[in-house]
């Protein structure tokens, strides 16, 4: 078959996927950037201007939102990863009932965030909530888990960690199964302690997985805002608001599409930065030493 036909065939096979990718990924990215310069409110103005970005720099709520997003990622990501490693190590042994244990760890991943957030809402509720009931049983004062600006973000974090750790466990489990048992036999001959084995063999060999999970976990920390809709709606006073939720609010509650676009550009920059981190710098440094 000649080359030209082959080329045309290749493009025909790609056509449907590329059209949809262009329509729902590439075109909207360009439109977002355009709207952030040309839009004001829900309309497009005739000239390009920097009003949206000027507002972005002055917006104190955004400052709060970014600080929340930062702490949200900085705490949930390492904790989930540490738990995920522990879970994977446990599940990878020959303990009795390992199947059940794996089921327990993995179940939160599979349940819709929105549905389980309803259960967590009950745990956290002030008057009749389960957590406050337990505290009351021990004679402690009730805590306003979702209504106290100093606590609400942490309450969200707890649920996020619960939801994510089991998902990351899967990646570690897969990685653990590729480590050659010979290494452990050798370590056993040397009488190495469990901690030494983990520190010298398991952990270094898990490094590529840790990088992969790390980037995806940070990405998720920016993408996953479902539970905010049920638990706090970003409140009180924006104390638990996160970037994507703030974009949603601006676009669909405050009807300031142009400002939402400027915020989306900011989010895109963060994502691009993460992508570069994954494919560039880190990927080269973390491989097996």
């Amino acid at each position: 078959m000649n080359n030209t036909t082959r080329q045309i065939q290749a493009w025909l096979l790609l056509l449907p996927a590329l059209c949809l990718l262009a329509a729902f990924t590439h075109y909207p990215v360009i439109r977002t950037v355009w709207r952030s310069f040309a839009g004001s409110g829900v309309r497009m103005s005739d000239t390009l201007h920097l009003d949206n970005y000027r507002y972005l720099l002055e917006d104190e709520v955004l400052l709060q939102v970014l600080s929340n997003s930062f702490w949200y990622a900085a705490i949930t990501v390492p904790v989930s990863i540490a738990l995920a490693i522990a879970m994977a190590l446990w599940v990878n042994t020959k303990l009795r009932g390992v199947g059940l244990l794996r089921l327990a760890y993995f179940t939160p991943t599979l349940l819709p965030m929105i549905s389980v957030a309803n259960i967590w809402l009950f745990f956290y509720s002030t008057e009749i909530g389960l957590l406050n009931n337990i505290l009351g049983y021990f004679g402690a004062d009730a805590v306003n888990w979702l209504g106290d600006p100093d606590i609400s973000l942490y309450s969200l974090m707890a649920m996020t960690i619960w939801k994510e750790a089991g998902f990351f466990m899967i990646f570690y489990l897969a990685a653990l199964q590729t480590i050659s048992p010979d290494l452990y036999h050798a370590a056993a001959l040397e009488n190495a302690s469990r901690w030494t084995i983990f520190k010298r063999i398991t952990f270094p060999l898990l490094m590529p997985t840790t990088l992969f999970v790390l980037v995806n976990a940070i990405l998720n920390a920016f993408k996953l805002v479902d539970h905010l809709f049920i638990l706090t709606k970003g409140g009180p006073n924006n104390s638990s608001n996160l970037l994507l939720y703030y974009i949603f609010e601006n676009a669909f509650s405050f009807f300031d599409t142009a400002y939402a676009s400027a915020l989306t550009v900011l989010l895109l920059i963060i994502l691009v930065f993460l992508a570069l981190l994954q494919f560039g710098v880190l990927e080269k440094r973390v491989h097996y030493r």
């Binding site: 996927a17 590329l18 990718l21 329509a23 729902f24 990924t25 590439h26 075109y27 909207p28 990215v29 439109r31 977002t32 709207r35 990405l219 993408k223 994507l244 974009i247 949603f248 676009a251 669909f252 599409t257 939402a260 676009s261 989306t264 989010l267 895109l268 994502l271 691009v272 993460l274 992508a275």
Partner: peptide
Amino acid sequence: ALVLMQLMVVPEILIVENYQT
């Protein structure tokens, strides 16, 4: 490369424009 871009920029991040489309 254009395909892989969507791994990072998932559709739900672009809710504003995708809604318009």
